[in-house]
Nucleic acid binder design. Structure first.
Length: 190
DNA sequence: CATGGGATTGACT
DNA sequence: GTCAATCCCATGC
């Protein structure tokens, strides 16, 4: 997707990314779950302002923001909105399409539904790490491309974000309703 | 310079 | 359902 796609309100981009394709190192998958984060709300890393950690979030749209979660996992985001605004879409789950054998080898698992059904799982499956922080998503090595025809009008459900303790009321999580590869069901009661 | 807290996952009761 | 693993970095002394 071109930078202009990302230079819009982050919640719109989060919804529109459902059905798009993420690819890296011969592996790819359909985005089936996303969450929006914006520097105006405290769940966003950029809420603290411009620091070494958040510099990527305030940079140009269409680049990758990759951070380490709980000291163990890497999580992939697409930076959104104009430079100077700290906003990004967290890619939370994929339906695997290409490179299934490589994904299974990296994950040490067989079941399709277990390969990319979580933000830490999909980065491990695709071989995405902190070294990709700041990379241009339109040039690679990590790329996001437009939706296959079958995903053009896929139904999208909105619900509250997962795993956070602040600003939990915002309905900024988006899921492909029919997908079996979500990190949790489309509508979580919590 | 020391400390505390995660945008998670997988193993275990 | 509960819980530990593990490390970067923002914050406060």
């Amino acid at each position: 997707m071109k930078p202009a796609f990302y230079e819009r309100p982050v919640v719109e981009v989060a919804r529109d990314l459902i059905g798009c394709v993420v690819a890296h190192s011969g592996c790819s998958g359909i985005i089936v779950e996303t969450e929006a984060y914006h520097d105006s709300e405290p769940a966003c890393h950029a809420f603290v302002g411009l620091t070494a950690r958040t510099a990527t979030l305030f940079g140009p749209p269409g680049h990758a923001y990759v951070y380490r979660s709980y000291g163990i996992h890497a999580c992939l985001n697409a930076v959104c909105e104009p430079p100077g605004v700290g906003a990004a879409v967290l890619i939370r789950a994929l339906e695997p399409v290409e490179g299934l054998d490589a994904m299974r080898a990296r994950r040490g698992l067989e079941r399709l539904e277990d390969l990319c059904s979580g933000p830490g799982k999909l980065t491990q499956a695709l071989g995405i790490g902190l070294e990709h922080n700041g990379a241009d998503l339109s040039r690679g090595p990590v790329v996001i491309t437009s939706k296959p025809r079958a995903w053009r009008d896929a139904p999208v459900a909105a619900s509250r974000r997962i795993g956070i303790t602040k600003a939990t009321e915002l309905p900024w999580r988006f899921c492909a309703e029919s997908s079996r590869c979500l990190s949790r069901p489309a509508f979580s009661r919590v």
